[in-house]
Amino acid sequence: MKRSLSLLAKLLKIQVRSQLQYPTSFILEVLSSLLIQGFFFVAFGLTLIRFDQIGGWNLGEVAFVWGITEFSFGIMDMFFSGFDYDSFGPMVRRGGFDQLLLRPVNITLQVLGSRFVLRRLGRIAEGLVILIFSIIQIHASLSIVKVLYIPVLVISQVLFFSSLFIIGATTTFWTMDRLEILNVFTYGGGEVMSYPMHIFPRSIRLIFTFIVPAIFLSYYPAVYILNKPNPLGSPAFFAFLAPFISAFMFLLALRFWRFGVKNYQSTGS
């Protein structure tokens, strides 16, 4: 375990060093991603000023779900890009996965260490700025427990998004075709989690409750933290399911992943 972690650290460190080789261009990339991502929120904020509210939530409140989702997704995307469907699929096809299997190290750890995208700091910073902006607006409704629940939520969301990444990566062991539907769940999940989810049609809410339980990772906890009424009328404890649901999904995703690797070794690519 200790050896695995130190190896992972080495893999990441060397990649960071090579990505920082041209510092100016790196900083520009991070800044531009911060600005481009942030622009969407600013544009959204400007329209909201005209209407004042969306689904009964004001800008500071929407900023909470928006910021925390962006922040968590950014962190996940930085650490788990080895499992990113868009790069993992081509790697399997080119035989890169075979090369990992030839090394005397746990395969999951190797995929994790195979790609680390430091540029994602832009998105992480954007999420953090929006989250801080929100907390300044909403601090009156916060208590100690609520404040402590925020980092728990971040970790839960990171686990949640990484589960989706891992499941997506695993499907490439069976099909070489791009499954667009997976992006609908992953990126679509991130999208719906950035808004108060009761504004969406019932069908969409059902998908993101039962198929991909995104609603437990963002909406229900936010309703609790922001003291909002819940027009969906669901039980109050739903607010606290996030860590359990995400941990369960993560374990499930890892199982599926291991099953996929086994299958790969019997069918080849």
Binding site: I14, Q15, S18, D98, P104
Partner: peptide, 21 residues
């Protein structure tokens, strides 16, 4: 994991090296 410690393999069409490093 234990087995591959004792072997080496080169597949001519592929590389085991890190592309960007």
């Amino acid at each position: 994991k234990t087995y591959v410690k004792h072997i080496g393999a080169v597949f001519g069409q592929r590389t085991t090296l890190w592309w960007d490093l």
